[in-house]
Design a protein around this nucleic acid. Structure first.
Ligand code: FES
Ligand code: FES
Lengths: 143, 143
DNA sequence: AGATTAAAAGACATTTTTATCCTTTATATG
DNA sequence: CATATAAAGGATAAAAATGTCTTTTAATCT
């Protein structure tokens, strides 16, 4: 549904959102361990996220990763777009040029609305919104 | 969302459902051309589908692929399970052991119901059901 | 039986995704 | 300034997905 890289990205960003702040930065290896993401691979993911201003990073002693106030407003969709490209979730299930209710493929109605809703949710909900749920005990961060 | 192999499988099965019958079998290459699926790869997909009784095949002169009355009753979900395994669509987006509303991951609510609905639709709708829509002009087979 | 047809099966090649390792650059601190 | 720290970047490796090619088996027809 989403790539491993996207999963890693979301898990890492949420971990940072819950545990880090500008004056409590976290090292890649200290995200790797609790989230069960391979260190070296996670570093690449964080690099990419940093390049797209989804996470913030500082090098050197006392450095690490954290989420700025701006970062926390990132819509979930952006993370997935950066990792998986624009159309993994929006493209037609059977590879028609466009996924379009006017000219639907045979699978369109099986997934159509649900897919659109999902994408809408990803666009409307930010990292901060998910953190609210976690802090309210409504959802749980996986190991 | 689903693999290329699954897309190919669904497209090929639908093509057979619309165009073939027990006394009008179709060669792999004659599915390949109209569906734009590479011949050799499609053959592998059809082989796998045949092994799981999703399509029927006969070798030798006058042979080819077709869908039996039984084949047409195949739920869409079975095709995707055979090609992509059991849990590509049902597993947790963030790789929790189970995707469970009782212990949801932070993304669960963004996708939860919609994913469940999609899987339900795939389980409830058969190849024959989709063909009905195609024949009624409600949906269109991609090239 | 022999020849031809077409799927089944096996071997192999390419590409993409996932993963690891090593070097370089930026930052902080003594 | 020298040194340590930690991310950034580059190179490489392993695994999985995708794609191709060749040989084998089963069916049909002369
Ligand atoms: S047209 Fe194919 S999924 Fe929408
Ligand atoms: S628990 Fe993660 S998607 Fe359902």
């Amino acid at each position: 549904m989403i790539s491993n890289s996207s999963k890693y990205a979301v898990k890492a960003v949420l971990y940072l959102a819950v545990n880090s702040s500008e004056d409590h930065k976290i090292l890649a290896k200290d995200i790797s361990t609790p989230t069960n993401i391979p260190k070296a691979y996670l570093s690449k993911v964080l690099q990419e996220l940093s390049r797209h201003n989804i996470v913030s990073s500082v090098r050197g002693p006392g450095g690490g990763f954290y989420l700025s106030k701006e970062n926390i407003k990132t819509p979930l969709m952006k993370i997935i777009q950066v990792m998986d490209g624009d159309n993994r979730l929006t493209s037609c299930m059977l590879s028609l040029q466009e996924c379009d209710a006017e000219h639907p493929c045979p699978m369109h109605d099986l997934v159509g609305n649900t897919k659109v809703n999902f994408v809408k949710n990803l666009e409307e909900n930010t990292v901060g919104d998910l953190v609210k749920d976690i802090k309210a005990g409504k959802s749980f961060l996986p190991l």
